[in-house]
Structure formats: C-alpha cells, structure tokens
Simulated assay, not measured.
Amino acid sequence: MILISRTKDIAKLRGLSLDDVALKAGLSAKSIYNWGRNSPKSENLQKVADVLHVSTDYLLGRTDEMNATSSDKKVTDILDDETILAFDGMEIAEEDKEKLREYARFIIEQRQRGNK
C-alpha cells in the first residue's frame, strides 16, 4: 500500500521510526502500522503529514511532490529593481516604489540586528 510505504520512507528519511512519528503526531505508538488494514482518519493523516513535513496527497500517492505549492502565489523580491510593483491593479509611481524599497531595507536591517 502506497500510504504505508511512503510514510515509512519519509520517516526513515527524517531519521524517525513509525512509532516516533505516531507519538509526535499525538497518536498511539503502533497506530500507523494499522493503516495497512484500515484507512486512517483524515485528521490523523494530516497530523502525520505535518510531522513529516509533507502533504497528505503525497502520503496517499496522489502526487509525487512532497510539498505541493499553489501555482497562484509567486515570490518576488521587493528589492529587485526589475520587479513591477502595483497596488489594486495599478502600477505604483517610481518615487513611491523607492520609498517602499527603503522601508523594506530598514525592516531587513532591523531583523538582522535582532530588533524585530
């Protein structure tokens, strides 16, 4: 069964036994071994996926991506001068972009100094 084999493989990759994973997920030590005979409750599957830092779809064999990402979201560096900054669908004026970049630099500097 894909669920058990993937759970074992990822646990091993993380340096954990199935008992360790179950206990960290708040389940009884041997509960994951029963998944070969009985399907787990969705909340238990989610807890185990969280412990292993993978998606439930990965454990179930629905995807080969351990951590599915949303294609809707993009990561863009605000400090990149080539990034087009916009608000409410309208491009931000260049002088305002520079003010935002200055503020971003200030925040980064504060975090580096430990002043969150």
Rank of each mutant, 00 (worst) to 15 (best):
3 L>Y: 01
4 I>C: 02
7 T>Y: 05
7 T>N: 05
7 T>F: 07
7 T>M: 04
8 K>F: 05
10 I>F: 00
11 A>Q: 09
12 K>V: 04
16 L>H: 03
17 S>V: 02
18 L>C: 03
18 L>N: 11
19 D>F: 08
21 V>W: 12
21 V>E: 01
22 A>D: 08
22 A>I: 02
23 L>R: 07
23 L>Q: 09
31 S>T: 07
35 W>A: 07
35 W>P: 06
36 G>M: 06
36 G>K: 09
40 P>Q: 13
40 P>T: 07
40 P>A: 04
41 K>R: 15
46 Q>M: 13
47 K>R: 03
48 V>N: 00
48 V>I: 02
49 A>P: 04
51 V>Y: 07
52 L>N: 03
52 L>F: 10
55 S>H: 03
55 S>F: 06
55 S>K: 10
56 T>R: 12
56 T>S: 09
57 D>Q: 02
57 D>L: 10
58 Y>K: 00
58 Y>F: 15
58 Y>T: 07
59 L>T: 00
62 R>P: 02
62 R>V: 10
63 T>F: 00
63 T>V: 04
64 D>T: 15
65 E>C: 02
65 E>H: 05
67 N>Q: 11
69 T>M: 14
69 T>S: 14
72 D>R: 14
72 D>I: 15
74 K>G: 09
74 K>F: 12
74 K>V: 14
76 T>C: 12
77 D>G: 01
77 D>M: 06
77 D>S: 01
80 D>Q: 11
81 D>Q: 14
81 D>P: 06
83 T>F: 12
88 D>M: 12
88 D>A: 11
89 G>R: 08
91 E>L: 02
92 I>F: 03
93 A>W: 09
93 A>M: 10
94 E>T: 14
94 E>K: 15
94 E>W: 08
96 D>F: 10
97 K>A: 03
97 K>C: 09
98 E>I: 14
100 L>E: 03
100 L>W: 12
102 E>W: 08
103 Y>T: 04
106 F>L: 00
107 I>H: 02
108 I>A: 02
108 I>V: 13
110 Q>C: 06
111 R>C: 01
111 R>K: 14
111 R>N: 04
115 N>A: 12
